[in-house]
Write a protein that binds this DNA or RNA. Structure first.
Lengths: 141, 141
DNA sequence: GTAAAATCTGCAACTTTGTTGCATATTATT
DNA sequence: AATAATATGCAACAAAGTTGCAGATTTTAC
């Protein structure tokens, strides 16, 4: 199920940040790599097939990946939190996320970045920026 | 508690969109006007004083205001949804929202707008854009 | 102003999403 | 292989949001 190339990559990423290489972390990283877009706990669970990770495990795994910066949280008009691989994102900005108002699907608009905002007010220090877009995806337009 | 000037404004807004002028809608609109930033159901409840609106009422009120466009949902790194008055927002973009990583407070960065994103891909129609910023507020910087 | 129609409101019960504590299992280190 | 360190799963819980329905308000029509 999990292709061994992805597994290798996942192991390397985990070693680099000094996290235990557990089957949960490896599989979840592989799932996120394959997906290429933000996924919720529930979506990860469904994609993990026979393994059936407990939801607590999935949340705790994501949190550990979040803490070391391998993963980001994406905020959107969904109730559940969505997580995605942090590669391709700079420290300050990630690609925008797009929600289709018709079908509800989420897309990452890779290769697109907006200028970093400069606050019009004195004293605000802006460290990160996240952009969310809404509209119609090609299938629904 | 609710200043009668705000009440008047709220009534006008509701009439304009043909919603019943109920005390719940009037008070909640007034609370949002006073706040000037996105609030959660729980924050609205605390600010409504003696009235003690049921949380169901607050959610349903916000939903009705949302449907007619008087109110927006702001997505942030908070678990609960936050709502704010939609005035000052164009159809396509609202001012950015700022979360302080130290104190957790939310600020609206009024008077600031970013260029609307243009999708790098054929077929995506972008209708709305929302920007979220993270950093340090003046009190914490 | 009053009655009827339309729409809100509150309550109770429920669903979904995420968290905590603890005992057991797995991974890394020596 | 033994030990220390960390992850996992389960059960129980907490927080956020929703649904159905009866009773209360607001509008509309007269």
């Amino acid at each position: 199920m999990i292709d061994s190339n992805l597994e290798m990559k996942a192991r390397k990423m985990l070693k680099a940040v000094k996290l235990y290489c557990t089957s949960g972390r490896i599989d979840i990283l592989a799932i996120l790599m394959k997906a290429g877009k933000p996924l919720s706990q529930e979506q990860i669970a469904r994609r993990s097939g026979e393994k059936h990770f407990d939801k607590v495990t999935i949340y705790r795994t994501l949190e550990s990946l979040l803490k070391v910066g391998l993963v980001h949280k994406a905020f959107m008009d969904k109730r559940a939190w969505h997580f995605e691989l942090a590669h391709n994102c700079t420290e300050h900005q990630c690609h925008p996320h797009f929600t289709c108002t018709n079908c509800g699907n989420i897309h990452c608009l890779m290769g697109m970045s907006l200028p970093m905002a400069k606050s019009p007010y004195k004293g605000f220090v802006i460290n990160r920026q996240q952009v969310w877009l809404e509209g119609l995806c090609p299938a629904c337009a």
